[in-house]
Design a protein around this nucleic acid. Structure first.
Lengths: 122, 122
DNA sequence: CGGCATCCTTCATGATACTG
DNA sequence: CAGTATCATGAAGGATGCCG
């Protein structure tokens, strides 16, 4: 236990010194205002743009686009364009995206257990 | 597996309809720009204000204050003021805060495994 | 349908200075 | 030491309209 603790302290120091905290890194991937919801939705099924737009209450097309682009850049989701009229675009989760599922699930469960006890949340 | 999947779909629907997705709720607690780092630091030890201010590179006193206040409001951390001169304030993690540790650890591990593979992160 | 371009507003955050 | 107060600003995000 002592070792573990010392280990942590060292890692903290290293991370912060190099300004590369992996916790923060993960947050930068899933921490966008809507990303966790998108991830949660998409991890269960292929989703189309309009479909998500309808499912996520209050999100604008612009926001949805930007969040999807960022997730794509991080290789969490994959964007497949069908060259048809009218346009059709499908978003699927990648393998790396799937590796985030345990995290999303854990967040969901923590939320379920604590949501009612905490202050209002937006 | 089929049940599970249907279950998910239902839950998604319910959450989104009621605008109370627990994943988003959790994000609202740990999703602040610096919260995960603060949490990570504080979960290992009692920390003083200035101490954290020094440890977290780039954070302003104002930001640190606001983030700490929010975590306190969510009962994730506890703020203890010592009536001495000069002032002394200690921040400790609460039990609810501790229940977030597995999440933080999981985020840290995902970050370690993926950080090098993804695009730049801030 | 799935965006992008543009304009515009508001909010989060930085900088700086002050205090019990 | 551990904050508050005040001011300033840049960027995030909303609204709207257009397009292939």
């Amino acid at each position: 236990m002592k070792n573990k603790s010392e280990d942590y302290q060292k890692m903290i120091k290293t991370y912060l010194e190099h300004n590369s905290c992996p916790v923060a890194a993960t947050m930068s991937v899933i921490g966008g205002k809507w990303k966790s919801i998108i991830l949660y939705l998409i991890s269960h099924d292929v989703k189309r743009f309009g479909e998500m737009h309808r499912m996520i209450d209050g999100i604008s097309k612009k926001m949805l686009t930007s969040q999807l682009r960022e997730l794509e850049a991080d290789k969490i989701i994959h964007r497949k364009v069908f060259p048809v009229v009218p346009p059709k675009v499908e978003y699927t989760i990648t393998e790396r995206g799937l590796s985030l599922r345990p995290l999303i699930i854990a967040m969901r469960e923590w939320g379920l257990e604590n949501v009612l006890k905490i202050r209002h949340y937006t």
